[in-house]
Write a protein that binds this DNA or RNA. Sequence first.
DNA 1: CGGCGACTTGAATACTATCAACGTCGGTGG
DNA 2: CCACCGACGTTGATAGTATTCAAGTCGCCG
Lengths: 303, 303
Amino acid sequence: MSSTSTAATSSGMATGNKLTNFPVLSNEAGWRCQGNLWSNLKDICNLLKVPSPNYANDDEVLFQHVRFKAGQRVHTIGQHFESLFIVNSGFLKTVLVDEYGSEQVLSFPMKGDLLGIDGIYNEHHASETIALSDCDIIILPYKTFSALGRIYAELEQAMFNVMSRELVREQAMIGMLSALSAEAKVARFLTNLGDRYGQLGYSGKVFNLRMTRHEIGSYLGLTLETVSRTLSAFNELGMITVDQRQIGIIDATALKTLRRLPPAKSRKKVTEQVSEKVSAGVTALISKNLLPQWNKEVATALN
Amino acid sequence: MSSTSTAATSSGMATGNKLTNFPVLSNEAGWRCQGNLWSNLKDICNLLKVPSPNYANDDEVLFQHVRFKAGQRVHTIGQHFESLFIVNSGFLKTVLVDEYGSEQVLSFPMKGDLLGIDGIYNEHHASETIALSDCDIIILPYKTFSALGRIYAELEQAMFNVMSRELVREQAMIGMLSALSAEAKVARFLTNLGDRYGQLGYSGKVFNLRMTRHEIGSYLGLTLETVSRTLSAFNELGMITVDQRQIGIIDATALKTLRRLPPAKSRKKVTEQVSEKVSAGVTALISKNLLPQWNKEVATALN
DNA sequence: CGGCGACTTGAATACTATCAACGTCGGTGG
DNA sequence: CCACCGACGTTGATAGTATTCAAGTCGCCG
């Protein structure tokens, strides 16, 4: 392939990238092309976790990488849609901005996630994506990509699959937002994040949050104080450890089973304490009044 | 069945389709084919509001209609994915069902909406769609449809557009769920519904809710009581009229501008009443303590 | 060191859910 | 025909949860 140098460019990046002769791109989001890597179709398929047919090894078609520094925008709201993006490394957030400038976080993309789908409809991006850390992003010019789709049926099918997957993910998000309590939201957020880190080969038990409490709160429909309090509570209860943005998952099952009250009708005061032997974490939650009374029954059932 | 007779095909289309003998369909959702209408590609494109190229008039490829009675399921959760669906007439709801059987409403599809996209990924439906009224649904067998897409590039592009549009819609939903107050949610729900009715040629000012308060609440992440109370309040304030499920929009702009508190810091008691001349509706809301104090400033600004 | 942004924690408030009682409408069967 | 019933809807009182406001801490960077 034609990707010339490629230099060192470890995670440190930006050391000596004056490697000149690339076409210098720039766009409304204000980024410039400093990329020096290229990926073929097979790489793309691997990243998206879709089967990569043989032909995909074809190095005739290459897609350029671009590096973003933390805080930079990959695309902005209203920007004309030209490309999809795949995250090769790094962490980002996609946000909606309402009429008064406040951000609504929609997702926290990381390696393997596809960005920019919302721009296909009506040719303009509906959201914006911002790097939370230094990132390596692969640019998929939409015209090129959809032309390829017409050649390789499997690729096209893969695109439909990815879009459908994204839709299902958002549906689950809607369900969670409107049906779960604050504690349950935070608990699920942590387990989901752990799972995703796990799938990427990192530890799913100990990891760093790449986002602020404020961003988590925006994502979950909570205030940053509520997020902070909930993390503190989980910590005191021994379900997790919290050290700044370093999270350690201790009682994963307790986190996963934390829920909101089903339309149950059992509801007494939390005065009379629990004496039965129940899962330590849940018991503690009850004693701290963090869970409504009905959960006591769930806890006992879990024994 | 061999529905032969196509009888009165009302809204045009499918007059001269050589309908031979159809296979009698039936599936996990329990519906049977009672359809006796067929649509061609052009009809489909019109319904989806995407440009319909000339070739689409081709009556070689026809898609069957199926009728559902209120309460019937078009597809269920977990059902094997085989077809997409387009609503030709009628009203429905799509729901998620959590581990404990409670429903989470995701959308209220009506004419022109595409159903079943969530099934593409992993071959199984993630949600279920239930008819709220008698419906006429067009079946798009996915294999057939995607094969057509490979022939007609525009059709394929249209599919991407529709899926992207759906994604954007869900993103907006997420933003609304996590950032708006109960009143604002209900207000937006009404205006959105009005807009959709308007686009279909009905009145956007006076219309019938096809769903229960409970379903609205589920959709908006509220209880049915809150929905009821909010409608009553809007009614008393002269912003809408409410007669059972008949809604009349009176002050559309007031509904559209109703919001949740931006991180403003002005927050006094609602004791000292407003004397300035402000929009009647908003003033009334303030006096009824339905809006927090900061909105008073918004109201005055609107003068 | 000062300052700023991120985070934590507490106290008071506001919002929405919950529980409960009642009203309405439409169907069904005595 | 009317009484009854069930599903839906309204309204009030109360309780619980999350937000808001307000300090104050911690870590980082110029």
